[in-house]
Design a protein around this nucleic acid. Structure first.
Lengths: 250, 250
DNA sequence: TTGCGAACTGAACGGGTGTTCACCTACCCT
DNA sequence: AGGGTAGGTGAACACCCGTTCAGTTCGCAA
């Protein structure tokens, strides 16, 4: 038996990629042999080489395809008007896309170290483009004084890590429906970067405005840090509002 | 040449664990051979089996040791009085510990799938204990109405993912000093979970108090979600404050 | 100084690895 | 009906894998 009946390239090709994706994601690139992928497809190992030049390229193509689809899916998304709106959409999009493609996400995050340097550079560039999409939103928000972000690059990495983490625990049919998960994450993201009222007023120079105590305010913030530890505020800011503030108006 | 001059178990043992940790973290468990670890130590592969029964146990011991040290380091930490204080300390501790032990963190996060089921269960239990430490802080904050957290478990996972993500980009001698990184992350964590003023007032039933617009408020929050999409608030809450609110008092 | 155990070598075992290649057969086109 | 080629097979190549073990040497205690 050489060629099997009913076989064709546009069936075997995708099946190989699906099997490789699933197995690489589940057991890791190095732990999965070409023979095992072939067995999953129901084919001999040699047949895989009609569809990929080698194992490394198979991994690389899976990761590149995933990231390209991620980028084009985001570009196709409606963007929203304000930075806050765009951030909300980004968070929800990210959660949705990452829940729907857990295996590809897992692969693209875990197997970077198994790429050759040249392939790694390509994947990193794609990933960077996606991160920049988020950072641009943050920068816009900072420019409009809608966001209070000490460092847009750090915050970009922090938010993406937080959102991507959903793949580690979310399971379909679990305690929380996907829509609610999206909403909770989006809400947290928004709160994490939003400009607090007391600060917005200070920045706008409204010394006449009543200063209201607010969590995150310097007088109350980060009380646990040792003396001399860094703070988020610039030194000039840390001194902050006058010490005598109304505790609560109500 | 059989035994090498100047050799002793309390030197070779640690060197094997260090080499294994570094190589496993860098290239992945499955991609690193016992011969390569041995070569790094300057020894033959067979000698490794004087120090570990097999490769799997070597991995497991590295991960278990790391998590046990993480737990006992946190337990030794000063805890702070209020939930906000404890959360701040937790965030800073987590960042510090994870920056200092990048390789062990990387290993413990990436190689879970290469553990046998029995070993996996042990590691997961340890990891769960650490997550619970954070969740307890969040629960306390929710009970005291200091935190506004829709789901403590989800938030725990989200915050840990965000904080642990620091290991993917932080490099010593980079743009940001460690203390500042700690401060920025701790600040974001705090903002992400804090109870907004408008909501605290509503909960406390202070209908007399002036309601102030606040980012995160339902009227303004999550505007990008499609119709019928989930929101963070419970249905009763979503209807929210009366529609007519002063936009800004200033 | 001798002897004994700790520390290690080096070869071997059975098996798995990615990849190649000569060969074969089912299908489509003329 | 028949030929060409797309889509395979299965054996082979050279090498690496985790692990074992008899044998060897070093350091230390008596």
């Amino acid at each position: 038996m050489a060629r099997r009946s009913g076989s064709s390239a546009d069936i075997t090709g995708p099946r190989i990629r699906e099997a490789a994706l699933r197995l690489f994601a589940r057991h890791g690139y190095a732990a999965v042999s070409m023979r095992r992928i072939a067995a999953e497809v129901g084919v001999q190992a040699g047949a895989l080489y009609l569809y990929t030049p080698d194992k490394q390229t198979l991994l690389f193509d899976l990761m590149r395809t995933h990231l390209e689809e991620l980028l084009s899916a985001w570009e196709a998304e409606e963007k929203g008007e304000t930075p806050a709106e765009r951030l909300d959409r980004f968070a929800r999009f990210h959660i949705r896309f990452h829940i729907e493609r857990r295996e590809a996400v897992f692969l693209s995050n875990m197997e970077l170290r198994n790429l050759t340097p040249e392939n790694f550079a390509v994947i990193e560039a794609l990933r960077h483009r996606y991160e920049d999409a988020l950072e641009d939103i943050l920068k816009d928000g900072v420019a409009e004084r809608a966001f209070d972000v000490a460092d847009t690059r750090l915050t970009t990495m922090a938010l993406i890590a937080m959102l991507t983490g959903v793949t580690t625990w979310y399971r379909e049919g679990g305690r929380l429906r996907q829509g609610r998960v999206e909403a909770i994450y989006a809400h947290m993201v928004r709160k994490a970067v939003q400009m607090p009222r007391w600060k917005r007023r200070r920045i706008e120079g409204a010394a006449d405005a009543e200063v209201i105590d607010e969590p995150g305010e310097p007088a109350e913030a980060a009380p646990a840090s040792g003396q001399g530890a860094d703070t988020v505020e610039e030194p000039a800011d840390v001194k902050g509002p006058p010490a005598s503030q109304p505790q609560r108006s109500g």
